[in-house]
Amino acid sequence: MTDKAVSEMSFEEAMAELEQVVGKLERGDVPLEASITLYERGAALKKRCEDKLKEAEEKVAAITLDGDGQPLGTTPVEGQ
């Protein structure tokens, strides 16, 4: 695990750490207080991954294609 702020993580970083958190919680060898902290971190990491995926989906959806499947251009995504 890293001390990096979840809000600064890329999708890949957040996913990798989330997998580590889940692994530790599944093993069950973490004290209760540490488990709570891990669970909270895991919830934040999950939300970060969901947010980054939604961003990517919106960017892909903003690409318009012509009849041949060729990009015509993009339209700005709200907030960009």
Rank of each mutant, 00 (worst) to 15 (best):
R48Y: 08
L18Y: 12
E78I: 11
I36H: 05
L18G: 05
D29E: 14
E58F: 08
Q20E: 15
A14K: 06
L32E: 14
E50H: 07
E57P: 01
E55F: 08
T2C: 07
Y39V: 00
K24V: 01
E33Q: 14
A44D: 09
L38P: 08
V60G: 05
K4C: 00
E57H: 10
L38I: 11
E58M: 15
G73C: 06
L38E: 11
D3Y: 09
E78Y: 02
S7D: 15
P76F: 09
V22W: 01
M1I: 12
A14I: 01
P76H: 06
D29P: 04
G79E: 12
R27D: 11
L53I: 10
K4Q: 15
E40L: 14
E17D: 13
E17F: 03
L38W: 07
P31V: 13
E57Q: 14
A44L: 10
R27Y: 08
T64P: 05
M15H: 12
R27I: 03
A44G: 05
A56M: 12
E17A: 05
G28M: 05
T2W: 01
S7K: 13
V77S: 00
A16R: 12
D66S: 07
S35P: 03
Q20I: 06
L53V: 10
G67I: 09
K46Q: 10
E8Y: 02
D3K: 11
D51T: 13
Y39D: 10
F11R: 07
R41K: 10
D29F: 02
P76R: 14
E17I: 09
A44T: 04
A5I: 08
L45F: 03
G73T: 01
K4V: 13
G69L: 04
K47S: 10
V6N: 03
V22M: 11
V30N: 03
A14W: 07
A5P: 04
A16I: 09
K47W: 04
V60R: 11
G69R: 06
R27A: 09
E33K: 15
A14E: 02
D51A: 13
E78G: 01
K47I: 12
K4A: 14
L65W: 00
M15K: 15
L53A: 00
E40C: 05
A56H: 11
A14Y: 09
G79F: 08
K46I: 03
L53W: 01
K52A: 14
A5Q: 13
K52S: 15
E57V: 13
G69K: 07
E17K: 06
E58P: 01
